[in-house]
Every structure is written in structure tokens, then in C-alpha cells.
């Protein structure tokens, strides 16, 4: 197998729609994920990435259907494990651009442990989480980011009474190297931020407010509530932490940009073949 595919990595002639496949999304009308699909294709075009060198990896959930709608390589795996497939792929094939995508349940509940360790490990990939504060594919249960008093979760009538998970604070504390928030209701505003996330070395977390108006009509309001963050991007984790801890969840922008070196396994070939390892077994 020839893996030295250092061919042309850029494709200047492509536009956003060239990154779409002809598969029609399963999403409901008004779903924020349409905006994310548009933003992502625009970013890929802006970065002039050749679709054959991009892999989009996902788990299970509405938003995790996104790889099939793209003209890149894709992997639609099992629930909660998208980051781990992305990690294996990027470590084995550092020449590829790896983007992991999914929802809040997939990433922060069933896949929560992998989220922590992906931030720590800092593999050079981008994680786009489309957060609608609920499980949509199973038709409306509370997720880790649901408000504690959201009454309509079908497994938590009367509310979850649990503190919502704060992905950006947890991501920062765990070592994510790039932290941003965008909105699925403003695709054009998200494009430069997603592009920057893909460009930035190490593990980049892009938290997307992606409303599900099918199971939570109140999220129609998100469009009006989001605003650009008033603070400049920082590389100071302390500053970012103070800001994020007091943030109401609707500030958009690049909120932290770290300078940690990405995960790199040194594996320089020092022997010709397996036979050279046999000497260690000699009695």
C-alpha cells in the first residue's frame, strides 16, 4: 500500500457546492445543521482543500449524518466514538485533514470520556459539535447541555435538575488548543471561524448553537440572542476561563487560541524489517 500521497493538497477551482454530495439530508425544516453544512463546505472551499484529502468522521445522531452529505471521505461510526475514529485516522495518516462532527449527546454524554482525552491529547483535528441541547433522532430527550428546568424531555418530565455541561469550559480545562462558538443560524459568520479552526494546529473545538425547533420551539429565539463576543481572542487560558465561566452561552467568536504543539508520535524507522527484531529473542 502506498501511503505517501503527498499530491496536490489544494484545489483552487472548487466552490462550496462542489463539497456537497447528492445525498439529501434527513434533517427537519429549520434545523440548524443545514447552516453548519453550508458553513463547512464554504470553509473547505475557502481553504481550497482537495476533497480526497479530507475525512469527516461522526458518530450517531441527527448532526452525525453530515459525512454522507459531503463529497469528502467520511466515516459514520457508532454512537459516541467519533473522536476515537478521528484520532486513529489522523495518527495513522497525518497527511489528511480530519474533521470530527456530531451532536451534544454523542460528544458529551456517551462520548464524554473521549472528549476529555481528545482535548488532552491535542491531535491536530477539528471537532465541530452541533449543540441543540437535546436528543433529536430519538425524538426529544434531555441531553447533557439541556437546561435543568426544560420540562419536555421525554425521559425527564419536569426537568433534569442537573447542571448543564459546559463544553467550552470543560474543553479548555482539558487542554483543547482552540475554542470557538458559532451559530448554525448565521452560516456566513461561522465560515472564517471554522476555517481558522481547521488551520490551527492541535485539537480545535468549535461549539455550534444549532437549534432544533422540532423538539424545542424556544430555540427559534437563539437567532436573536446570539452576538459577537466583545473580547479579543486570547492565548491565556486563565483569561479565557474567567470569560467562559461568566459567559451566557450566546457569545460567538474565537474565544481561545492556544500554542501547545500537537500530539506527535515519534516513530522514525530504525530497522529494515520485522526480521531485524528477532535478535532480542535469541537465548
Amino acid at each position: 500500500m502506498n501511503l505517501s500521497m503527498k499530491t496536490e493538497n489544494t484545489c483552487p477551482s472548487l466552490v462550496a457546492k462542489d463539497y456537497r454530495s447528492d445525498t439529501k439530508p434527513v434533517w427537519c425544516p429549520g434545523c440548524g445543521d443545514f447552516g453548519v453544512l453550508l458553513s463547512l463546505t464554504k470553509s473547505l472551499a475557502e481553504l481550497q482543500l482537495n476533497p480526497k484529502n479530507v475525512a469527516v468522521i461522526s458518530g450517531i445522531g441527527c448532526s452525525s449524518r453530515i459525512p454522507a452529505y459531503l463529497n469528502t471521505f467520511g466515516f459514520h461510526g457508532v454512537h459516541g466514538r467519533a473522536l476515537t475514529i478521528g484520532t486513529g485516522l489522523k495518527v495513522a495518516r497525518p497527511d489528511l485533514t480530519v474533521i470530527v462532527a456530531g451532536g451534544d449527546g454523542d460528544g458529551f454524554s456517551i462520548g464524554g470520556n473521549h472528549f476529555l482525552h481528545a482535548c488532552r491529547r491535542n491531535v491536530d483535528m477539528t471537532y465541530i459539535v452541533m449543540d441543540n441541547e437535546l436528543y433529536g433522532m430519538t425524538k426529544g430527550q434531555a441531553s447533557p447541555t439541556s437546561a435543568p428546568d426544560w420540562e419536555y424531555g421525554k425521559l425527564t418530565p419536569g426537568g433534569t435538575h442537573m447542571k448543564p455541561f459546559h463544553p467550552l469550559v470543560v474543553g479548555l480545562a482539558s487542554g483543547a488548543n482552540f475554542i470557538a462558538r458559532v451559530s448554525g443560524t448565521n452560516p456566513n459568520g461561522a465560515v472564517p471561524i471554522i476555517s481558522e479552526a481547521i488551520r490551527h494546529p492541535g485539537f480545535s473545538l468549535v461549539h455550534v448553537l444549532s437549534p432544533c425547533i422540532t423538539f424545542n420551539r424556544e430555540q427559534l429565539e437563539w437567532k436573536k440572542m446570539v452576538r459577537d463576543a466583545v473580547v479579543p481572542t486570547t492565548n491565556d487560558a486563565g483569561k479565557a476561563a474567567r470569560y467562559l465561566m461568566s459567559d451566557d452561552g450566546f457569545n460567538l467568536g474565537i474565544l481561545f487560541k492556544g500554542d501547545r504543539l500537537p500530539y506527535d508520535l515519534k516513530s522514525e524507522k530504525t530497522v529494515d524489517g520485522p526480521a531485524d527484531l528477532e535478535a532480542q529473542f535469541s537465548v
Binding site: M1, L3, T84, I85, G88, L89, V91, R93, N113, H114
Partner: peptide, 30 residues
């Protein structure tokens, strides 16, 4: 021993991660 041949070994966070990392790397052709 694997790095001597240019191979890579990642310590994963749990077994769910280890098998899926292997699947991801194999998807990449390795």
C-alpha cells in the same frame, strides 16, 4: 518495537477508544 518499523502505538483512554482508533487507522489504510 512497533516504532522501530515506523509504526505507531497510541495509549487510548479506554477499550471503546482503542478499538475505534484501530478502525479509524485501518480506514486510513494502515
Amino acid at each position: 518495537n512497533l516504532p522501530k518499523l515506523g509504526g505507531k502505538l497510541v495509549q487510548a483512554e479506554d477499550e471503546l477508544a482503542s478499538i475505534n482508533q484501530a478502525i479509524g487507522a485501518s480506514f486510513g489504510g494502515v
